[in-house]
Simulated assay, not measured.
Amino acid sequence: MSQYRALSACGKEWVFLREEPFVSESDRAAIQLMSEQAGANIWRDYISGEHLYPELFASDMWVNTQVQTEVPWEARWESDNESLPEEVLEYCSQWGQDTRIYFCCHSDLVFETTWGVFERTWKAFLFLGADLILVGRKKKQALQFKETGFVSLLTR
């Protein structure tokens, strides 16, 4: 059983096929949609073993209690500036371009790629929904892009 499935399997492929923000063919090839089972395992191990969706998180869960700071992302997302907010880049500055990251929408919808690909394509990823969580493999830092237009810089 493969740990990945086709992007078209979840109906979200359009996010990465838009003209704006543009995602190159090589970056699209590096964005993997995890199988439901593999995604559920990542969600359980990195996010929560109890709650399947961000909107169900308890107030005492790490995502809500381990916030280092919150940084606005929405104005940058809407601008012509393609880079993530400087505070996010600084917070994740120890991550190499090839650091494996998991972009988690909910337990059934988890994407795997590298930090370098995410840095270039982050605007496309944010079309996937609200309260999205990014974790790095074997990293303590995490990010939650909130519907409020802020990104929480988290410590797992």
Rank of each mutant, 00 (worst) to 15 (best):
G11I: 00
K12G: 13
K12N: 14
K12Q: 12
E13S: 09
E13T: 11
E13N: 14
W14P: 01
W14I: 01
V15I: 02
F16K: 11
F16I: 09
F16V: 06
F16N: 08
F16W: 15
R18I: 01
E19W: 00
E20Y: 01
E20K: 00
E20L: 00
P21G: 11
P21V: 13
F22M: 12
F22G: 01
F22N: 12
S24N: 00
E25W: 06
E25H: 04
E25L: 15
S26M: 02
D27Y: 07
R28H: 02
A29C: 02
A29W: 01
A30E: 11
A30W: 02
Q32P: 03
Q32A: 08
Q32L: 13
E36S: 06
E36D: 07
E36R: 11
E36T: 08
Q37W: 03
A38P: 06
A38S: 14
A38T: 04
A38Q: 04
A38D: 05
G39N: 08
G39P: 04
A40T: 09
N41Y: 06
I42M: 00
I42N: 01
W43N: 09
W43L: 05
W43G: 05
W43V: 06
R44L: 03
D45C: 05
D45A: 05
D45I: 02
D45N: 14
Y46G: 08
Y46C: 13
Y46E: 15
I47C: 15
S48T: 10
S48D: 08
G49I: 05
G49M: 03
Y53M: 13
Y53I: 10
E55Y: 15
E55P: 04
E55R: 15
L56A: 12
L56Q: 15
A58C: 07
S59W: 07
M61I: 12
M61V: 14
M61C: 12
M61G: 10
W62A: 14
N64V: 04
T65R: 05
T65I: 09
T65V: 09
T65N: 06
T65W: 01
Q66E: 10
V67S: 07
V67C: 13
V67Q: 12
V67D: 04
Q68G: 02
Q68E: 08
Q68D: 03
Q68T: 12
Q68F: 05
T69H: 02
T69N: 05
